[in-house]
């Protein structure tokens, strides 16, 4: 078998075509248009007018933009490590064959399979300060609507800090994909290395610290960066459905919600496009980090 001849090359091009058409028409062109719109003023009704860098100077001075950028970054830096840690913990707990492990694995993946809006509505009920099961649980043993320690239970939907925590809490349970990847990664590790460690009487903590963690580090790092990129997007539905960007002042307004509001509620499409550009730049930065990690681990393991 040598290089594909003209005929098979034509077949390959034909098979690739639908994907390429979709990519260009549905992703690349809109992206370029958005990029261009970032330098215009556009309300979706009248034709856009060129305003140069005005949108960006306005962004720098916009306190709401700064709040949403901070919110997004904090969400990413707190929620993503927690998600990966939770997924890792579950993967290490459930990688062996044992009674009930299959059901437990399904349960771990299940929240990820629930449609996002339904998931959001479910949490709206769970988090209800008065009737929600979470706070009912926290109030057990306490009196006068306080917790057993005599504190006020978290006001998930009205207190800014509690609301941010609620969004992070929600995002933890949708780590099904991360869990599946880590489960597969753990099961792919060689068994004899663990038997070797058992012969040396290594403790569970030593095995985790000296063997499992370093061997899974490449996968963990890649998943963390992937989740970091994804966190720009998966903060949208919870903030939109559960907290509506509030409580004031904009406690759970993330970049994605900020873009949505500006584009479709305030009809400032050009302004929203400028924020989208910022999000794209953040994503590119994360992808660069990812590339460096991949190259480093390649050199490290000589693959």
């Amino acid at each position: 078998m040598t290089r594909p001849d003209t005929r098979s090359r034509r077949q390959l091009a034909l098979m690739l075509a639908p994907y390429l058409v979709g990519l260009v028409a549905l992703v690349l062109l809109p992206a370029v248009v958005t990029l261009a719109l970032a330098f215009t003023e556009y309300d979706l009704l009248r034709p856009p007018t060129w305003v140069g860098l005005d949108n960006f100077t306005a962004l720098v001075d916009d306190p709401v933009f700064r709040v949403s950028l901070t919110n997004s970054l904090v969400f990413g830096l707190v929620a993503v490590p927690l998600r990966v840690l939770l997924a890792l913990g579950l993967a290490l707990l459930l990688h062996r064959r044992a009674l009930g492990v299959g059901s437990a694995r399904s349960a771990a993946v299940l929240p990820t399979a629930v449609p996002e809006i339904a998931y959001g509505l479910l949490w709206l009920w769970l988090l209800n300060p008065l009737y929600g099961p979470i706070n009912q649980l926290l109030r057990t043993g306490g009196e006068n609507g306080l917790t057993a320690l005599g504190r006020t239970p978290p006001q998930w939907l009205t207190d800014p800090t509690d609301a941010r925590a609620a969004i992070i809490l929600m995002s933890l349970f949708t780590m099904g994909e991360t869990f599946v990847v880590l489960l597969a990664a753990r099961r792919a590790l060689p068994r004899d290395v663990y038997e070797m460690a058992a012969l040396e009487d290594a403790t569970g903590w030593d095995v985790f610290r000296r063997i499992t963690l370093p061997l899974m580090a490449p996968v963990l790092a890649l998943l963390a960066v992937r989740d970091l990129i994804q966190s720009l997007h998966f903060s949208f539905v919870p903030a939109f459905v559960v907290t509506d960007g509030g409580p004031p002042p904009y406690a759970t307004t993330y970049l994605s919600l900020f873009v949505y509001r500006n584009a479709f509620e305030y009809l400032r499409y050009g302004y929203a496009a400028a924020v989208t550009l910022v999000m794209i730049l953040l994503t590119v930065a994360a992808v660069l980090v990812q590339w460096r990690l991949v190259r480093r681990y390649r050199a490290f393991y000589g693959v």
């Binding site: 004899d192 038997e195 070797m196 040396e200 490290f300």
Partner: peptide, 15 residues
């Protein structure tokens, strides 16, 4: 208090 040499050697690849 035994030590073993595995057929695959079971060396730790990251160390």
């Amino acid at each position: 208090n035994v030590s073993m040499v595995f057929q695959s050697y079971a060396l730790f690849p990251h160390l």
